[in-house]
Amino acid sequence: MLEIKNLRATVGGQEILRGLDLVVKPGEVHAIMGPNGSGKSTLANTLAGRENYEVSGGQVLYDGKDLLAMSPEQRAGEGVFLAFQYPVEIPGVGNAYFLRAALNAVRKYRGIEELDAIDFLTLVRKKMKLVDMDEGFLSRSVNEGFSGGEKKRNEILQMAVLEPRLAILDETDSGLDIDALRIVSAGVNALRSPDRAIVLITHYQRLLNYIVPDFVHVLSAGRIVKSGDKELAHELEQAGYAGFEEPPGDGTPVDVRAVQYRGA
């Protein structure tokens, strides 16, 4: 489904991804772990098509198609979904209006009939139960004034509504307390299916207790340096990323936060 070959990407002139390879098949859940600065978010944003992430080499095939040649909205139409690490607040745009516009844009792209307001409401009510959101959220502006947990639940709600085939969850666990983490994880698990692939990008093993991955990869300095099954995540939890970080002096920024939070 997703084939990343030797992907290189730069942000602000600095090369962050330095030859990344990854193959994801339908039904699989992959976790990509790594210290801050290793390129996790760059990977997520590059796959979603964010403008200031410049691809300087390599290839990404999605169902055999050149993903990198598509606009962000085409990618969404094709079934790629990015759950944002920092969901954007959009004052003045109602959540329901936004969700329906997104769903109908994607349906239109896929050649499916658009949903009217009533059918949409029925659908969204059902999906909201997945992430334990009440209807009040529909009439509020997109993410405006939402707590960290509410924003992440709103991301999973969007995922549930849009039914992507490839979901990339960028640090969806960050900023969540244990209850919110459970709700969000349950929502994601409910969306696991044999024809849907999920890529979890995370700093911590904690999330993987709730969403159990088939594969775990360690990202360091823009490359996947080790792959394994879920046991690898436990090893990382014990040993930290120390063994995978390049020694200072080679141009890789040392991430102080990664050191501080280790084992927290």
Partner: peptide, 10 residues
């Protein structure tokens, strides 16, 4: 970008 990433044309 957020809206476009959800499929809404630019």
């Amino acid at each position: 970008f957020y809206l476009r990433a959800r499929g809404i044309p630019a």
